[in-house]
Amino acid sequence: MARAKISGKKEIVAAAFALVEQEGVEALSARRLAASLNISNMTLYNYVENIDEIKKEIIAEGFRQLYAIAYRSLESSNQNNLALDMKSASKILAEDIFDFGCSNKNIYQLMFANSVKKFREDMELKPFYSYFLQLLPKMEDKEKRKKIHKVLNMLHFIVSQMIMDKIIGIHDYSKQEFNAYVDQFVETMFNFD
């Protein structure tokens, strides 16, 4: 017999996250999700408005995990007193997002595929799509800031495209290859002084 209640929206998001990662976003439907939670469709809709809301929550959860990984990597470098400037931090972040994409292929596709324009434009999610912009400090020199902003956006574009190419089987970059590309881009483009 189906449960009448669940602990909250978090439980739905966790189940949806697992479902999408295992079977792809195409498998995400109210019926499948409700069945996996042992609740009725009606109970599901007491917690969420529609499937798009669930997709948004999955993307948000993906970003939460991704940003947590990135923070921990940088913190660990910081604590080990390694050089931590924009160049080295960019490389660390790129590697983290590569690892995240490889181990969460379906979630990554949902987060970054071009078909999800509306989520990219969602005001809650938007800042998190600018993954490398967390490295961009507030600075007096607005021109310099704009320049750095552009270069970080370019890095984001390259990294996203390479990971997507790998996931959908266009080019199976190894981690070493990926890092070499990132390294070359950063060493060539990060000259802001």
Binding site: K9, A60, Y71
Partner: peptide, 22 residues
């Protein structure tokens, strides 16, 4: 509900803490 907003707040926090650390 606060518990439904927690994930968003954590993401913002990681974003800002990363930037501040650097």
């Amino acid at each position: 509900r606060p518990e439904d907003r927690e994930g968003r707040i954590e993401s913002i926090a990681y974003f800002l803490r990363t930037r501040k650390m650097l």
